[in-house]
């Protein structure tokens, strides 16, 4: 028996909106510690890891570990029927082939339940080693989204370079080139507008903008995004999900061969 009640149901709506274009079908893994997901895009170039810790739910009951295979587009369709301030409860029986989403309005005057069929999904779980990153950039998520969107009108790839001077996003295309440099800015008064760069060593990596733009669908979840870079390793683009967890996107860099 699984029963997860999330007062901030809007968070789950935003999580699904940020996943559904990258991944079609995925297994949500439920355990005593939380509700999580790891899935790759169809080309296995990008991976998303989601964790919503059990403490973040108002009520969290998970009698035994359960894997719920869901079509993320269909799940997003159902969650779109919840209002942003609705309380969302996810329910499933151990042997059931369906999951129920219950939406309650904050003053309890409207209660809806939507039942969705589950799927059997063969998913491959990859081991992601703990890495020491050469550079970690924390910046406003809206600024990062704007940069990815702007650069993708000019080129297909972005070179992200971190030096003492700041973080530089560069692209080139048929019509020309573009470089955007963001300098460190601690923004003491408004921490959500800060750009903080922790650099062990300068690093420069090339990524497909198509995926970066897809990751920025998570922008409504968090004011800040963290971009962790190391030479010859996938970049990690992380958005915090309130106080309860995170959504992390991994993207393999392009390499010269």
């Amino acid at each position: 028996m699984l029963e997860l009640r999330l007062v901030q149901g809007g968070l789950l709506k935003k999580v699904l909106e940020s996943l559904k274009d990258l991944v079609n079908d995925a297994n949500f893994d439920c355990s005593a510690s939380g509700f999580s997901l790891q899935a790759m895009d169809s080309s296995h170039v990008a991976l998303v890891a989601l964790l919503l810790r059990s403490e973040g739910f108002e009520h969290y009951r998970c009698d035994r570990n359960l894997s719920l295979g869901m079509n993320l587009n269909n799940m997003a369709k159902m969650l779109k029927c919840a209002a942003n301030d609705d309380i969302v409860t996810i329910k499933a029986d151990d042997a059931s082939d369906s999951v129920t989403f219950m939406f309650e309005s904050p003053n309890q005057d409207k209660i809806a339940d939507f039942e969705m069929k589950l799927m059997d999904i063969d998913s491959e779980h990859l081991g992601i080693p703990e890495a020491e990153f050469q550079a970690i950039v924390r910046m406003p998520s809206a600024e990062f989204a704007r940069i990815c969107k702007d650069l993708s009108t000019i080129g297909d790839t972005v070179v992200i370079s971190v030096t003492k001077e700041g973080v530089k996003f560069s692209t080139r295309g048929d019509i020309g080139t573009a470089n955007i440099v963001c300098r460190q800015n601690p923004s003491i008064d408004k921490p959500e507008e800060a750009t903080i760069i922790e650099m062990e060593e300068p690093v420069s990596l090339t990524f497909a903008l198509r995926y970066m733009n897809s990751f920025t669908k998570a922008t409504p979840l968090a004011n800040q995004v963290t971009i962790s870079l190391s030479a010859d390793l996938p970049v990690v683009v992380e958005y915090r999900v309130a106080e309860m967890g995170y959504i992390r996107f991994y993207l393999a860099p392009k390499i010269e061969e």
Partner: peptide
């Protein structure tokens, strides 16, 4: 042009 490897080059199934 640079080559796009997939994630299996970096991460492995446990």
């Amino acid at each position: 042009p640079p080559f796009q490897p997939n994630l299996h080059r970096f991460f492995h199934s446990p």
